[in-house]
Amino acid sequence: MGARRPVENLLALAVLTVAVQRPMHPYEMASVLRARGKDEDMPIKWGSLYTVVRNLAKHGLLEAVESGRQGGRPERTVYRVTEAGRREAEDWTRELLSTPRREPSSFEAGLSVMGGLAPDEVTALLRQRSQLLQERVEAARHALDQQRDELPRLFLVESEYALAMLEAQAAWVGSLLTELAEGTFPDLETWRAFHVSGRMPPDLEALAERGTTEE
């Protein structure tokens, strides 16, 4: 885990990376980020953009270079990245590339409590997920093939990674479905019996009470 950053919202990193290109006002930053599809690469709340920009300026990572008004539009302040901001963006990028982080997904959360549903229902739900994953894999492959004709690979590596993660998840879900369908999933009958009787076997109940992770 790296040191605490002055502005920890990932939108701040996105802002710094576009401000390195040239001075911009926040509205222009948002337009560039949207055009680059950054909201697909990281969690971005567009409503907080101006707050993030102000916080970056407060900490000396951006600085205002001019402020003006065109016609009846609100006044717009143009910001440029400072040397400290440039170093922050570089260091932050190094950390993200080099250091794996534990980032639980909503799917992991669902898997952690799937025992609360009967095996047949879980199987049906996973088949539904498998179908959706296959559709997304095909769509992502098609989009990536089209982008390869227009963009250098440097700007596509995040799309390649996203596709690889989709493919890996689809393969894993398919493997789990095979275990459930063939009856080779461990304790499948115990799981099924629990949903018939409503009574959990004592050994599984003890595990549920204390959890399965030991220090």
Rank of each mutant, 00 (worst) to 15 (best):
A3K: 12
R4T: 14
R5T: 11
E8W: 07
E8Q: 11
L10G: 07
L10T: 06
L13A: 06
A14L: 02
A14G: 06
V15R: 02
T17A: 07
V18K: 02
A19E: 01
Q21R: 10
R22I: 05
P23V: 00
H25P: 00
M29E: 00
S31Y: 11
S31W: 14
R34E: 12
R36N: 11
G37R: 09
P43K: 06
P43I: 07
I44T: 05
I44H: 04
K45Q: 09
W46L: 03
L49R: 02
Y50P: 00
V53I: 04
V53T: 03
L56M: 04
K58Y: 06
L62P: 02
E63G: 01
P74Q: 06
R76E: 07
R76M: 11
Y79V: 00
Y79W: 00
R80A: 01
T82K: 00
T82S: 03
R86L: 11
R87F: 10
R87L: 13
D91F: 12
R94P: 09
E95D: 15
T99E: 13
P100H: 13
E103R: 11
E103D: 14
S106N: 12
F107P: 01
E108F: 08
V113I: 09
G115H: 04
G116E: 11
G116N: 09
L117W: 07
L117T: 05
A118S: 08
P119T: 06
D120R: 08
E121L: 10
T123R: 10
A124T: 08
A124V: 09
L125W: 05
L125F: 07
L126H: 00
R127K: 08
S130Y: 06
S130E: 07
L132V: 06
L133D: 03
E135M: 11
R136Y: 06
V137C: 08
V137D: 03
A139V: 12
A140E: 09
R141H: 13
R141P: 07
R141V: 14
H142E: 14
H142W: 14
A143Q: 14
L144W: 12
L144Y: 14
Q147A: 15
Q147Y: 12
R148E: 15
R153N: 15
F155G: 14
F155K: 15
L156D: 09
Y161K: 13
L163G: 10
A164T: 12
A164Q: 15
A164F: 13
E167T: 14
Q169R: 14
A170R: 09
W172N: 12
W172L: 15
S175P: 05
L176M: 10
L177I: 07
A181Y: 08
E182M: 11
D187L: 11
D187T: 00
L188Q: 06
E189V: 08
T190L: 08
T190M: 04
W191R: 02
A193K: 09
F194W: 05
S197F: 04
S197H: 06
R199H: 10
R199T: 10
R199I: 11
M200W: 03
M200Y: 03
P201I: 01
P202T: 04
D203S: 07
D203H: 11
A206W: 04
A208M: 10
R210K: 09
T212F: 10
T213N: 12
E214Y: 09
